[in-house]
C-alpha cells in the first residue's frame, strides 16, 4: 500500500513538469511603396540583414518569414529617398499583425516597426 502511495507521489511530481512550445512563425512585410527602399531586418539568430528592394506599385509586397523563439526581438526598418514616396511596414506573428507603421508617422525618410515577441 505504501509503495503505491510512494509511486503515485513521485508520478504526481514528475507529471507536474510541463514544457510548452517555445517558437513561433514571424513574417516581415513591406508594402504600399513606390520607389527604391533600403530594408534592414533582424533575423532569428539576432543578425541584422540589409536588403535593397524596389516596390513597383502600391500593391507590390515584399515578405520574409522565419521561426523565432518567444521573447526574441523583431525589427524591420526601411529607408526611402524619394520625398513623395510612401511605405508601410508590418510584423506578423502566426499570421496576425503584431506591429505596423507607415511613412505618414515618421519625420525623416525612414519607417521602423519593432517589438519583442510575447511569451
Amino acid at each position: 500500500m505504501q509503495k503505491i502511495l510512494l509511486i503515485s507521489c513521485v508520478l504526481m511530481l514528475v507529471s507536474a513538469c510541463e514544457k510548452d512550445n517555445q517558437t513561433t512563425l514571424v513574417s516581415y512585410r513591406a508594402g504600399n511603396g513606390s520607389s527604391e527602399i533600403s530594408l534592414s531586418y533582424r533575423d532569428e539568430s539576432g543578425n541584422m540583414i540589409d536588403e535593397k528592394i524596389v516596390l513597383e506599385s502600391s500593391s507590390d509586397v515584399w515578405t520574409k518569414s522565419m521561426e523565432f523563439e518567444k521573447g526574441e526581438i523583431v525589427y524591420l526598418s526601411g529607408i526611402y529617398y524619394d520625398s513623395v514616396a510612401s511605405l508601410k511596414l508590418e510584423v506578423l506573428i502566426d499570421g496576425k499583425v503584431f506591429k505596423s507603421n507607415n511613412s505618414v508617422n515618421e519625420p525623416a525618410k525612414y519607417v521602423i516597426v519593432s517589438g519583442s515577441i510575447p511569451y
Binding site: 534592414s40 533582424r42 541584422m48 526581438i73 525589427y75 526598418s77 529607408i79 525612414y110 521602423i112 519593432s114 517589438g115
Partner: peptide, 9 residues
C-alpha cells in the same frame, strides 16, 4: 539596450 525605434537598431 536595443533601441528598437531607431534606424539600424
Amino acid at each position: 539596450k536595443y533601441m528598437i525605434l531607431q534606424p539600424g537598431l
